[in-house]
Amino acid sequence: MPLSTQSQGDDEQYVLVACSDNARNLSNILKAISFKDHAIFTATPNGLRVTVEDSKCLQANAFIQADIFQEFTIREDSVTFQINLTVLLDCLNIFGGSALPGISTVLRMCYKGYGYPLTLFLEEGGVVTVCKINTQEPEEPVDFEFCSTNVTNKVILQSEGLKEAFSELDLTSEVLQITMSPSQPYFRLSTFGNSGNAHYDYSKDSDMMELFQCTKTQTNRYKMSLLKPSTKALALSCKVSVRTDNRGFLSLQYLVRNDDGQICFVEYYCCPDEDVEEE
């Protein structure tokens, strides 16, 4: 493999080098957060965090641990840059992104530092493509101050159970209302559309429910347009943790298993749309 046998000397000029023998492992998880063009990449020795935001009300983070990559070298404590995610995804799938077993694109991703482009070496079937994507001045991601000590309600569901609900969501509804409660209806998703309203109730005893920790009845509304992109993450995931804090902020954490059985996380934070009278 020409990419992996490149001399070590070349690498010294890069502050970040990440290699994977399957580019899909990276592209798949980036797809789960690709609802805006601009993504902030933050690399630390632990791995890569990719952040995408919308309207300062929604933030999605993909965490790709260092051990997802066959090689992950970082010469600084932290490397941050911003990049066009759509372009990056196009490049990662430049060979078509085939999901057939035995065919995979080998990826070597290098970054020289501030002001330099992100360089991708992609190889499939002996063909090498080199892509250079200009990096941008990184923006400061919004801190949602979502702190686990302030979490009021939390449920962990198998994604299978939520996929159906999210695929059937009435998109004529402006909001998705989430009710979490220690008593009936436990965990409820509601929409209020043109033709009427719909409620999806999940019992706390359901075998889809892996964890149910609700302390207080909370009803919050979230903009449908903001939450809709999270469906992409849901589709890839096998489990999802839904949490709300005392301010009604929503945290959705998705556990995603990649082609090689490794685990990554995708997280969505969303501001509540408005205060709803609590019962």
Partner: peptide
Amino acid sequence: NRLTFTLHCKHGLLKTHNLS
């Protein structure tokens, strides 16, 4: 003035559609 469709699904999922 609502017609309510309630679907009792597997895994204890209850879908209620109130249609005008």
